[in-house]
C-alpha cells in the first residue's frame, strides 16, 4: 500500500482517500469521454481524408471501403468530417460549460456567503435571466452579436451561469451555519479565505456534477445552433452543420445526415454516463 501511494500523484491520492473508491460507472464514463478526447486530439492522424477537400467525382457515394461512412454532396469524406468535427463540438461543450461555471460559482458563492443586499441583487438578476426560456434567450443574444462560435460562448455564459449560481448559493447558505465556518472566524481568517478556501470546496460538488450533465446540454445546443446556422459556419466540419447540409439529400444519401447525428448522440451519451457516475460517486441527488 505504501509503495503504490508513493507512485500515485499526491493530489489524486488525497482525493481518493477523501472520496473513496469510485463506482464502475465512473470508469466506464471516463473511458467513453476519453475516447472523444483522443479522437479530437489525434484527428489528423486518424482521419483518412482532408475534412474540407472536395472531390466532385465521388459526390454522394454510399458507405464503401474507400469511404466507410460515405461522402457528401461535395464529395467530402463523412468519416473524416465527423472526426475533425469532434474538435469543435468538444470545444463548444467544454468552453460552453467552463465560462458559465466560473461566473456562476463566483457569483453564487458571494451571494450565499454575504447574503443581504449582495444576495438580493444577484438573485433578482438571476430571476430576470431565468424568466426567459433558456434557448430563446441564447438565440436572442446570438442574434444581437451575430452568428459564430464566439457569440455562442458569450451567449451561453450570459445565460448558463444561473444554474451554477443557484447550486453554489444554496450550498453556501447551508455551509454558512456550519461550525467549521465559525471556527474559521475564530481563527481570524478573512472573508475571502473562509469563502474560497474553506466553503467553496465543500459547496462545489453539486455544481461539478451538474457541469457534466451541462456538457451534454451544451454540445446538443452547440450543434443545434450550428444546424440553424447560428454557430459554426460551413465549411467548418461540425456535426450540427453536417446534419443541416445533408438534410437536402436525405432521401438519396441518408448517411450524410445520419452519421453526424449518431456522433452527437454517442458523445452526449458518453458525458451522460460520466455525469451519472460522478453523481453516484459524490453522493449528489440530481
Amino acid at each position: 500500500m505504501a509503495v503504490s501511494e508513493l507512485h500515485t500523484p499526491r493530489r489524486l491520492a488525497k482525493l481518493h482517500e477523501r472520496l473513496g473508491e469510485p463506482p464502475r460507472l465512473v470508469y466506464i464514463g471516463a473511458a467513453a469521454v476519453a475516447f472523444w478526447f483522443v479522437v479530437a486530439v489525434f484527428a489528423p492522424f486518424i482521419a483518412p481524408y482532408d475534412p474540407i477537400a472536395q472531390d466532385l467525382r465521388t459526390t454522394l457515394s454510399p458507405p464503401s471501403w474507400a469511404h466507410p461512412l460515405g461522402t457528401d454532396n461535395f464529395g467530402r469524406d463523412v468519416l473524416s468530417r465527423i472526426i475533425f468535427g469532434t474538435r469543435l463540438d468538444l470545444e463548444m461543450g467544454i468552453l460552453g460549460v467552463l465560462f458559465p461555471f466560473l461566473i456562476g460559482i463566483t457569483l453564487g458563492a458571494f451571494a450565499g456567503y454575504f447574503g443581504g443586499i449582495v444576495d438580493t441583487l444577484l438573485m433578482r438578476l438571476l430571476d430576470v435571466t431565468i424568466a426567459f426560456p433558456y434557448f430563446v434567450l441564447v438565440i436572442a443574444i446570438i442574434a444581437i452579436l451575430g452568428p459564430g462560435v464566439s457569440s455562442f460562448y458569450i451567449s451561453v455564459a450570459l445565460v448558463g451561469w444561473v444554474s451554477y449560481a443557484r447550486l453554489v448559493r444554496a450550498e453556501m447558505l447551508v455551509l454558512r451555519e456550519q461550525d467549521y465556518v465559525m471556527a474559521c472566524r475564530a481563527l481570524g481568517f478573512g472573508h475571502l479565505r473562509t469563502m474560497l478556501r474553506h466553503m467553496l470546496p465543500n459547496a462545489i460538488i453539486p455544481a461539478v456534477v451538474f457541469s457534466m450533465t451541462d456538457v451534454v446540454i451544451v454540445i446538443l445546443l452547440g450543434s443545434s445552433l450550428s444546424y440553424l446556422g447560428l454557430g459554426a459556419q460551413p465549411p467548418t466540419p461540425e456535426w450540427g452543420v453536417m446534419v443541416a447540409d445533408g438534410q437536402n439529400f436525405i432521401t438519396r444519401a441518408w448517411w450524410i445526415t445520419f452519421f453526424p447525428g449518431v456522433a452527437i448522440v454517442l458523445a452526449a451519451l458518453s458525458f451522460s454516463l460520466f455525469a451519472d457516475g460522478l453523481a453516484e460517486w459524490l453522493g449528489v441527488q440530481e
Binding site: M182, A183, R185, A186, L187, G188, G190, H198, N202
Partner: peptide, 26 residues
C-alpha cells in the same frame, strides 16, 4: 482589527471537534 486578535492573541476551541474542522483539509 478584530480579525488580527482572533486566532493570534485570543484563540477559541469548541465543543464538537468533529464539526469544527473543515473536512476537506488535512
Amino acid at each position: 482589527e478584530m480579525r488580527v486578535v482572533r486566532g493570534r492573541d485570543i484563540a477559541m476551541i469548541f465543543q464538537n471537534p468533529a464539526s469544527h474542522l473543515d473536512p476537506v483539509f488535512t
